[in-house]
Design a protein around this nucleic acid. Sequence first.
DNA 1: ACATTAAGTGATT
DNA 2: AATCACTTAATGT
Length: 210
Amino acid sequence: MNVEKLQSILTHLNLEEGLIKEMLTTGHSRQLMAGAPLISPGTTGSHMPLVISGTLRIMREDEEGKELFLYYLEGGEACAMSISCCMSEHTLGFKALAETNVSLWMVPLNLLNEWMGKYSSFRKFIIDSYQARFDELMHTIDSIAFMNMDERLLKYLLDKKQSSGSYVIDKTHEQIATELNTSRVVISRLLKKLEREEKVELYRNRIEVL
DNA sequence: ACATTAAGTGATT
DNA sequence: AATCACTTAATGT
């Protein structure tokens, strides 16, 4: 079904043939509907999810259930968090949600150590994805610490436009607010301002970036 | 027609 | 920028 797509992703990651074979035989596929949770805090994972298609949203959740958006995972990217959990046997302190319909390839964690020794391409892949996640985290930290809400919102809208390739964003102000870790009222006000500046057009459940 | 959910707004901290 | 309280608008039943 998705095997060709998975194979092309693995080849693009420059993984050895032998490793690709092993990954295909030892893992299994998994589909998530948009909005479905993949992992929630406190659970210990047994597999590392590798995104074949779609987008995963990774968040941190505090005691009162407030969510802090960390970063997105898209095609060809792996979840660095579950890797670290595998190595250090920690429980997962974060949450992953399917942003769109998502297909995943679930790789058993107990094989990661073996593969890192056996395949240099895999070692590189793991380190690279760690690096990439780290960079993304730095970006979100930057924006939380140094950027005003209006800048963050504008950046969010432009990022969305870029990654979806469309200027329509099908989200409510409420959803955007939780992703940017603020309240709906603030988003509504800032969007209204952007509308007056003729940068966006507002509709119910929909925003168009101009 | 009524209920529910999304969005707009002034006032307060 | 956050919260409250309230209004208005869009949608579902």
